[in-house]
Simulated assay, not measured.
Amino acid sequence: MASTVINVPEKARRGEVIEIRTLIRHTMETGFRPGADGSIQPRDIIQRFSCRYNGEQVFGAELFSAVAANPYIAFHTVATDSGTLVFHWEGDNGFSQTETAKITVTD
């Protein structure tokens, strides 16, 4: 299991634009590099990332071989209601990880 760092404001005002930052520690392998024995190492990358806010997708990304190890993704959304943000990463070799964060929205 990869480790994650998620930065979401604990509180926001309704209608406020908030920044969400995520980082996942994952050893990325492009599938183009030769190993010590000269054979190409198999690809192992995170392919997709999504964020759902109270069940509605507010951000999604498709990642490719050129993405760095430990992908850092930052995006903005509007604080609408208190609730839960669900972050989901999918990758090669059946990799899947889901994390959550809570946000409180005030008027």
Rank of each mutant, 00 (worst) to 15 (best):
V86Q: 15
E56M: 11
R21N: 13
D81M: 12
F64E: 14
T77S: 09
I46P: 02
Y53H: 13
S39G: 04
R21K: 15
R52E: 10
D92T: 08
F95S: 03
G94E: 05
V86G: 06
D81S: 14
R33F: 04
F75Y: 15
V78R: 13
V86N: 11
D37Q: 00
R25L: 13
R48P: 01
T30K: 04
Y53K: 09
I40M: 10
R52V: 03
C51Q: 04
I45P: 00
L63E: 01
A36F: 05
G83T: 04
P42C: 06
T30A: 07
V58A: 05
D44V: 08
I73M: 12
T22A: 10
G38I: 00
A79M: 06
T84K: 12
G31F: 12
F32R: 08
D37N: 00
F64D: 15
F95M: 06
Q57I: 13
P42F: 07
H26P: 01
R43F: 13
I46E: 03
H76N: 12
Y53F: 15
E62F: 07
S39I: 00
M28E: 05
S50Q: 02
R21T: 09
D81V: 11
T30D: 09
L63Q: 02
G38V: 00
A74P: 09
R52T: 09
G60E: 15
I45A: 02
P34D: 02
S65N: 07
R25E: 09
Y72H: 13
Q57H: 10
A66P: 05
T27G: 10
W89P: 00
T77E: 07
G31K: 09
S82V: 01
P34R: 01
A68K: 14
P71C: 12
I46W: 10
V86M: 10
R21M: 10
G94S: 07
I46T: 07
C51A: 15
V78P: 01
P34H: 02
Y53M: 11
D44E: 13
F64K: 12
R25S: 07
G83R: 05
T77F: 08
F87N: 01
N54L: 06
P42M: 08
I46R: 07
I45T: 09
R33L: 07
A61Q: 12
D81Y: 10
R33H: 09
P71W: 15
A36C: 06
